[in-house]
Design a protein around this nucleic acid. Structure first.
Length: 271
DNA sequence: ATGGCCGCCCTAGGCGGA
């Protein structure tokens, strides 16, 4: 029995914030690190810095200036083909097989301001993206169940206590019924386990993102849980064996030099 | 009750984030 530590973090520019990643790599020591919003092309990715942190195996899916995801691993990794998942051609998905587990890293579209797919094409795109994910994993499930871990910035806070005010956010993109209903369908598509809520049930509040606009994010504490780590049933026991210490939202990373507006979420798998 | 920030890009204001 050993422990595989897995992290997801929307880094909001990896070129600007790889020093933060280095600190995190020391402190949390994830074996597998899934980054979103790297905001650079593949040849601009700070590969040398990541290798110095012990991440010899990199699968980078970048694009110019926006979006972009990467999987960094201390263990050997077999990159897997992307499946599109994005009608706009953005780099929002990376997959790889590591230690016999299939990892999927997603950056779901934010969806713009107006929660109406007729009036706002970005919101339509977000809903479409979530539907594509659901169709993909339903198709995969029909072929048999694998050890699968999907994670990333899903840009949806699914439950009442995943936001600071359920009532005030019901009409705010990230917590509207069309989004939270799709999150439930996506979860069901492969019978995934939402590890954070399995280990820390409601009504305890859990947030992974706090807006830059709050002067004092800790004091106002208007957060949302947008970042998720889900596992398939064959990994459920491994993900839950450690109890609530097996999941951690590293809130301290919302402070310090040039923080991302998201904090890393870490799961320890007993494999 | 409201508005509050940040990072990207053909370096500067506009766009996107959520």
């Amino acid at each position: 029995m050993s422990v595989l530590t897995v992290a997801t973090w929307n880094i909001n520019s990896v070129r600007l914030r790889h020093p933060n990643v280095a600190r995190f790599a020391e402190e949390a020591a994830p074996d597998v690190l899934m980054l979103q919003e790297i905001k650079c092309q593949n040849d601009q990715f700070p590969e040398k810095a990541l290798r110095q942190m012990g991440y010899e195996h990199l699968h980078i899916c970048g694009q110019k200036g926006w979006h972009g995801v990467a999987i960094a691993s201390r263990l050997p990794m077999e990159p897997l083909d992307g499946h599109g998942f994005c009608r706009e051609g953005h780099a929002r998905h990376a997959a790889a097989k590591i230690a016999g587990i299939e990892f999927h890293n997603f950056y779901v579209p934010a969806g713009g301001d107006i929660p109406d797919p007729e009036a706002n094409d970005k919101f339509a795109h977000k809903l479409h993206f979530l539907d594509e994910m659901t169709a993909y994993f339903a198709g995969r499930k029909a072929q048999g169940e694998e050890k699968m871990l999907i994670a990333g910035d899903f840009n949806v806070a699914p439950h009442e206590h995943d936001v600071w005010s359920h009532k005030q956010l019901l009409k705010v993109v990230s917590h509207t019924p069309p989004e939270t209903e799709r999150m439930a369908k996506l979860l069901a598509s492969y019978d995934f386990v939402d590890v954070a809520r399995e280990l820390i049930p409601e009504p305890e509040k859990l947030y992974s993102w706090w807006s830059y606009r709050n002067r004092d994010w800790r004091k106002s504490n208007r957060g949302r849980r947008l970042d998720h780590i889900w596992v398939s049933q064959p990994l459920k026991a491994a993900a839950t064996a450690g109890g609530r210490d097996a999941i951690r939202f590293w809130e301290d990373y919302r402070d310090g030099e040039k923080p991302s507006d998201h904090v890393p979420v870490v799961v320890k798998l007993a494999v």
